[in-house]
Amino acid sequence: MTFWLLLSVNSITFGALLFLLAAGFSLIFGLMRIPNLTHGSLFMLGAYFGATFVNGMLGAYFDFWLAALMAAALVAVFGAVIERFLLRQLPGQPLAQVLVTLGISFMVADLCLMAWGGDPIAVATPPGLTGFVRIGPMVFPLYRIAVIGIAIVVGVALWLLLDRTRIGAMIRAGVDDPDMARVVGIRVSGLFTMVFALGAALAAFAGIIGGPILTVYPGIDQYMLPLALVVVILGGSGSLLGSVVGSMVIGFLYNFGQALFPELAYFVLFLPMLLVLLLRPQGLFGRFIP
């Protein structure tokens, strides 16, 4: 019983982390129709920047949360630059966008290897969250529970932003009909840059939040990107609810698959994606786009 419960909590925690990563990916992919393969790199950059600040690699030690915000802000700027100066030049060319973003992800991986070396970098759990929570006879790591809480807060904030604010309605209008959105005075290009930067910031935030659980190492980008892809394909691109459900499904499949069928872990992970692609290409909660 304890085993199953612990595995479940780990699955939810991993799902929460995946949600933080995939929500931004889904926003960019679903709203802007850009298959952004740098998303894993943005996660990795956030993790490396955060680890640098937290571990005092620049000579000064930063608070974990401040470091997370600084990393997210830096990566948001990087994301905005990619969108504005590269992807903006390739509208409606998904193949070119895939190649450009894939190329950037390889370049970022090389630069990270050069800057931070090949050894994994541990990120300490933030003070105050190092303990355990006792629920009945069970003991759960407090930080993992906190990650779940953070994902819920971010999810609600994103929902409020997209569904309950004027700027959210403007983003959705821009997705519905970009030309008409411009005709009614919406600066669609600026909004899309903002969405891309927000998605990048979320990925980076996920990177450093995941640091104490996953550590930071070369190749973590290529480890996380397929998972985010599966979440978005499963849940449906552009759908926040889809990201939540997709993340949780993948969180459980990944952890239970690794524990119960380690030799088939990836099979268990990717099979639902194949089925969804075949039976419901727009994903569980995505809109059909002809």
């Binding site: 309605a169 959705r172 209008a173 997705v175 519905d176 009909d177 008409m180 959105a181 809109r287």
Partner: peptide, 8 residues
């Protein structure tokens, strides 16, 4: 804008 409400 079809995916927005009338008010939006």
């Amino acid at each position: 804008f079809r995916s927005l409400t009338v008010r939006e």
